[in-house]
Design a protein around this nucleic acid. Sequence first.
DNA 1: AGCTATATGTGCGTTATCGCACAGACTTTT
DNA 2: AAAAGTCTGTGCGATAACGCACATATAGCT
Lengths: 255, 255
Amino acid sequence: MTKPLGQQDPLQNHLLSALPAAEFERLSAHLELVPMPLGDVLYESGGRLKYVYFPTTSIVSLLYVLENGASAEIAVVGNEGILGISLFMGGETTPSRAVVQSAGFGYRLKADHIKKEFGRAGPVLHLLLRYTQALITQMSQTAVCNRHHTIEQQLCRWLLLSLDRLTSDSLTMTQDLIANMLGVRREGVTNAAGHLQRAGLIFYSRGRITVLDRPGLENAACECYAVVKREVDRLISDIPRGDPKQVLGKSTSDK
Amino acid sequence: MTKPLGQQDPLQNHLLSALPAAEFERLSAHLELVPMPLGDVLYESGGRLKYVYFPTTSIVSLLYVLENGASAEIAVVGNEGILGISLFMGGETTPSRAVVQSAGFGYRLKADHIKKEFGRAGPVLHLLLRYTQALITQMSQTAVCNRHHTIEQQLCRWLLLSLDRLTSDSLTMTQDLIANMLGVRREGVTNAAGHLQRAGLIFYSRGRITVLDRPGLENAACECYAVVKREVDRLISDIPRGDPKQVLGKSTSDK
DNA sequence: AGCTATATGTGCGTTATCGCACAGACTTTT
DNA sequence: AAAAGTCTGTGCGATAACGCACATATAGCT
């Protein structure tokens, strides 16, 4: 299911691939390929981080867990991003938990290395901050979405966000797990998923969901998906490899 | 109601007051005192920012607005913070709107100045990033809160967060406006507020809310308030004036 | 083939919130 | 003093999601 080690490449991660060659070389010496199995907890709420992670073929959920055990996903991070931003933001810890939602691989980098690199105040810093802003957008949009949209709309958004971070058009995830991510009942997901299946948008069976009609699914999703995607594209994906001007965001600046 | 100009001081803002003297001197030459009247829109969704704002006696809400006009507050910023983080994060714009929720004053700084200061990669950068992380916590906690807690719990959280950013124990805000902030119906707020009043926790009348029993209110609030407060304290307030070591977050670092 | 885990389907009463309509109370204006 | 505007209270049916209980279906194991 997951690609063999031989096919892994740090450049599959969009942040790493957007770095100028010099920066990438410096970092790549310390990048360590790691398998990221389903359910793996990269960091726990309040825990001290030892690494940052650059997913390549895996997807990771950021979860907030309440005292009573209830939880909700506040963002999804895949090959477009990085995990462990609190390391370079300066807080060292966060009240969130990071759980691998879709098994795959990623590269990790020791805390010291990312901090040192960040301290150079060069393209790496600027790129990571741009990504952080995209992440902030995703979190905010999730907050609004939780307030105003139905389970079905949110399920569509969630499926699309997850699929965008994979190469395949199907993903391995039980309705029970999805319910945990969305912070709703499993039955609620069953209802919504059943509805989407009867509408011919998806097909699912025992923990495997396949998207049959992507445009239809986008149509059934709330605007939140588009807002998040647009912002990630604007802030990250549109940066061509090794263009430090753009990475620095100085193209229109008046230095 | 609001303090006269003569009583205003940039050091009322916790970020500015946490800066080492040298950095503060450099910035203060360009700080411009501005009144921030109720309802003032500091920036619009997608709009380009000309300034960052450091509130002193005002409170500002970050709102996300949906296509159908529905909205929800994702964070509150007062004298502990700064508005316009997307300027230094590199994105230039955000999909959120910033509205003055409680009239007062603040200091603003031209976009170029904050960017230049940020580019020095010194204490200002590190402090602003720490604050940004606190803001991220607030946004995330809001997302979970929207999912799992009742209107009454959220109202308590909101009141406490707002009060912490004022010197007084009462605030000027109609239930209609609060409903807009929380993204719920006005009647829902009326219900919850009536309940809190009958319980002797607050007193309100035509747009003026006074907290009578703060411990009681904290008790009626969900944990989200405490989580956000703890994180802001940890990341910002606990930094003594002009201790660059702490601001840089290097006290435990292994340079 | 049979057993067991796990995944999904369904029904039903409960609850929180919504949407709407309108009544009362207080403030400001004229 | 009257009128107009604003803020708050209340009632009622509709709806979305919840909590729980249990039925059914499928995959994997022995």
